[in-house]
Design a protein around this nucleic acid. Structure first.
Lengths: 224, 224
DNA sequence: CGTAATTAATGACCATCAGTCATTTATTTC
DNA sequence: GAAATAAATGACTGATGGTCATTAATTACG
């Protein structure tokens, strides 16, 4: 009798249903404003039931967020497996990250609204672990690509791919966060178009990390 | 009779005392974990009294934070008024910001733990206004210095000082935030020393925004 | 079947905490 | 020194994350 297996599937399905509900609520309201009662109501379950499947609100939040991380992993994977030249790979990488920001803003937001150590208290070890594994996989992927760019002569050989990756990602992300929640302020107070600033920031950094030859390759690409 | 004036002074003093208490508590626990009862106890007052002087917990938080902003304004001011050469000015600017990060970590943290729009709900218009005025003054100061760097031939003439300022500040700050709460993770998972990454990031960006002549000047400085 | 045992779901309840307000205490005025 | 004013208090409210004894549904099995 496959009763046990069916029940396992049903349980897994319920876990997913709850996650879907949580996603809707977190997307709409954010971690701090979303309440477990909102999520329970959206999932058409009682609050107590949520806690049978997830240990805390933060666990639920991170589990939704991991969907976004997986999505990012997938788009980066496509670039990594796209048999591109180093120059094309680097430009695609920056392109797909910008697309990710534009088209999956909700996930992007979730991934960066977690700095504060206060929110880490309620996270279970399992979820923290899964999160960090997924994170590591993404970085390994990116570092691999950057290593290829270095080996291919696009990027300066004296640079460490992990350092370059962190610098590129960190500066792009910082500006994206401003775009996400301060775009109006910067436009009004300083007449700055943050999207342009992001482009400039990227091109300055690319300029600085490329070899002479690499710069020409990238320029050729952006002109085509 | 100066009774009225004395009472005004006393009131102002109490406001400061409450702010001192709030600062101690926020430094120690952060916005989310600090409670108004903690602050009240530290100030040796009842919670109700706090609300006679500040409209909300968030207002109190921002008012403490503004002390930090003023401090930053002051150190930037010193650089602006230091009669430095453009190259020296730029390197001092980046130096004092790093010092600020290292020596006033608590204020630094406070200034960057406010992204989430959820926390902005309870902020009064007055405080928001003061904050934004102070912010504007800091940026005007920095933009003025960067304009001098451009005029002095250190930085490329085709760049907009506001854009350059935002890029430099934003990338440095993003890495400082990592240093502040993820230093161990990056060291262990990727063998990265984030302080070195910050230095590299800065030097890459400086390289990219300087004129040929500017690069030499900066290099001469860092060798001396 | 039908009954016992197991599993799943519930929602009343608890603790915490920002913010309020009727009451109390202190100060000033005259 | 009594009345008026100002300052301070802390019990209370409402919101919310999380718990758990109870109830409902499902399964196992004689």
């Amino acid at each position: 009798m496959g009763t046990h297996e069916r029940k396992e599937r049903e349980k897994e399905q319920r876990r997913e249903d709850i996650l879907d509900a949580a996603q809707r609520v977190f997307f709409e309201r954010g971690l701090a404003v979303a309440t477990m009662d909102d999520i329970a109501e959206t999932a058409e379950l009682s609050k107590g039931t949520l806690y049978l499947y997830y240990k805390s609100k933060e666990d639920l939040y991170l589990t939704v967020m991991m969907r976004g991380m997986q999505l990012l992993y997938d788009v980066f994977s496509e670039v990594a497996n796209g048999a591109y030249s180093p120059a094309k790979m680097l430009s695609r990488l920056s392109e797909v990250y910008l697309n990710y920001f534009n088209n999956h803003r909700d996930y992007f937001r979730m991934m960066h609204y977690l700095q504060a150590p206060q929110f880490h208290k309620q996270i279970s070890e399992e979820v923290k672990q899964s999160c960090s594994v997924l994170n590591q996989r993404i970085w390994d992927l990116v570092n691999g690509m950057l290593q290829q760019c270095i080996d291919g002569g696009l990027l300066r050989k004296d640079l460490n791919p992990a350092e370059v990756g962190l610098i590129l990602w960190s500066s792009a992300t910082a500006l994206m966060l401003r775009i996400d929640n301060e775009e109006g302020i910067w436009r009004e107070a300083f007449q700055l178009n943050l999207h342009d600033v992001l482009k400039l920031s990227n091109s300055l950094l690319f300029d600085a990390i490329c070899t002479e030859k690499g710069r020409l390759e990238l320029k050729a690409l952006s002109n085509s």
